[in-house]
Design a protein around this nucleic acid. Sequence first.
DNA 1: CGATTAACCTGGAAGC
DNA 2: TGCTTCCAGGTTAATC
Length: 288
Amino acid sequence: MPELPEVETVRRGLEPVFSGARIDSVDARRPDLRFPLPANFAERLVGARIGALGRRGKYLTADLSTGETLIMHLGMSGRFTVSGGGKARQPGDFHFAGSTDPAHDHVTMEVTGARGSGLVVYNDPRRFGFMDLVVTSSLDRCAHFKGMGPEPLGDSFSPGALRAALGGRRTPLKSALLDQSVVAGLGNIYVCEALWRAGLSPRRQAGRISAASAARLHAAIRDVLDEAIEAGGSSLRDFAGSDGALGYFQHRFSVYDREGAPCPRCSAPVRRFVQSGRSTFACGKCQK
DNA sequence: CGATTAACCTGGAAGC
DNA sequence: TGCTTCCAGGTTAATC
């Protein structure tokens, strides 16, 4: 499901439940998601108090009182749902009452915080997501974050920084922006949308864009991410935030998944083509 | 160095 | 209705 706006939407949904709460119990129904869960996964979580719930690119981070940080990645189809805790759960059942897809409820956590207890369930049909535990003091150097580019909504992401990160790359702009070492958190949807907003062709050579183009692209990336977060992310298929609310940014796509539809800017038909194995959507007329 | 393909896994949609 | 094929928000390793 998730690119940066969807992950941020999930973070905001989980924050009131997680932040400051104590982890009472953890159930892992299987030993692995995309990768094996960390050794002694449940034991390392139970009893810990959760500090800040953060996000880095498409990753969620839960800072724990044990000195470790729980890292969660949603892959393509991962989602969290929150329910009211003990009452919502059948005694002895792994699944929480009301789960619509118990077969893919892989990890559950019962937590107790200022707002009472809650049950958080991680569901992931395709199992491309994963969880990891790393020592908090070396979080930035861990395998997941080492080499990751700047947060696109953060202070260090500037037009100059973007242009510098693209510098020397002969790969198409589209592919470069999907590279998390250039800028963190963009995926197929928002790269397509940002390039449309900037009026830049996805096929442009990344290292050859002008400073003015980089400035337009920088602004387009920030704008599209800001607007998508504001809208609660995009709900393709059935993605919903942790509170069950559906994001609605998909109704504001200009080009993504709109092959053949008129470009909102120039009315030429939106084209679909494949770059590095993934669908690109762009206007062939006004994206240069 | 860069581009393409495959792989991981499941389910939904479309085509016949 | 049922079977087959294609496609999907991500990431990474292998190959050309």
